[in-house]
Design a protein around this nucleic acid. Structure first.
Lengths: 143, 143
DNA sequence: TTTTTATTCGTAAACATTTTGATTTTTTAA
DNA sequence: TTAAAAAATCAAAATGTTTACGAATAAAAA
């Protein structure tokens, strides 16, 4: 069973109907692997389904986030989504600021000697490393 | 010389004129110590100077960011500014998600065994720890 | 196949943030 | 003290993101 089929099956089991738009959205995230904004997703779906509405995009991103198929991040340039990354439980990413491809990194600084101020209750953390990937340095591309 | 006088002197030396609004803005950041959005700054200045314009706020935040008196951050809830923190060169923060007070933490995970993917050129990083400070846990305040 | 109901479409509006421009006021230096 | 320049005001608009809703469509179950 492919990754896409697996995701779609999960969605179906959770009561979501499998529409063409949803198949396309899932395919997009699988082949892209990076962080995508609602606009990015819209731009892509709009090619296959001219007239697709933002309603559809936002609703599906929200639903898939709620059922933990996607993860939502607030990055330097706004709200982004990516496939829920479960490979090594908890980890962080290198993020290319040009093409936005990501490279998971299996290390979390929270595992080290982090001592909060007195009484501070840690809830979550953010650790991202930004830079240029090999390709984008070659290209000299500025997105 | 107070911190405020010090900042204002620097601004003056860089060619900025010292206006009442700028004095008030500087005072705000000094007494607040946390992260402030443009709106936060507006709300505060508006009390002393009814009719203060967004133009003024944004221009001054931008100028002070450019001359490195303020730092700009993109946090969970948008663009924020805080006084440029120079105490121990490079460090990170605990951030209370309720009152947005911050606690500098003199440790940077980049100093540890971080190995980027082949060819990846690291440019910057983000490491923030969110939670509830002692006071906000007591209060049960939800901002 | 038919029916039920979720989903999408199309469009607009809500919303928040930031920028602009013409005019007035204030600061600073001569 | 006065002139020149910078900064602030006021109001509006540009911008970008997200939400809303009635009508139309399509998916899934009976």
């Amino acid at each position: 069973m492919t990754v896409a089929e697996d995701l779609l099956r999960t969605m179906s089991e959770q009561g979501m109907r499998i529409t063409e738009q949803r198949k396309s959205l899932v395919a997009l995230f699988i082949e892209n692997k990076g962080y995508l904004s609602a606009k990015d997703v819209y731009n892509h779906l709009e090619r296959q389904y001219p007239g697709v509405s933002f309603d559809t995009i936002y609703r599906n991103l929200r639903l898939m986030n709620e059922m933990e198929l996607l993860e939502q991040f607030i990055l330097e340039d706004g709200v982004k989504f990516k496939l829920h990354c479960s490979e090594h439980s908890h980890h962080h990413h290198f993020i290319c600021t040009s093409c936005e491809s990501t490279y998971p990194y299996n290390f979390c600084p929270m595992g080290t000697e982090i001592i909060p101020p007195t009484g501070f209750k840690v809830i979550k953390h953010k650790f991202e490393i930004y830079g240029l990937c090999e390709n984008c340095q070659k290209d000299g591309d500025v997105k």
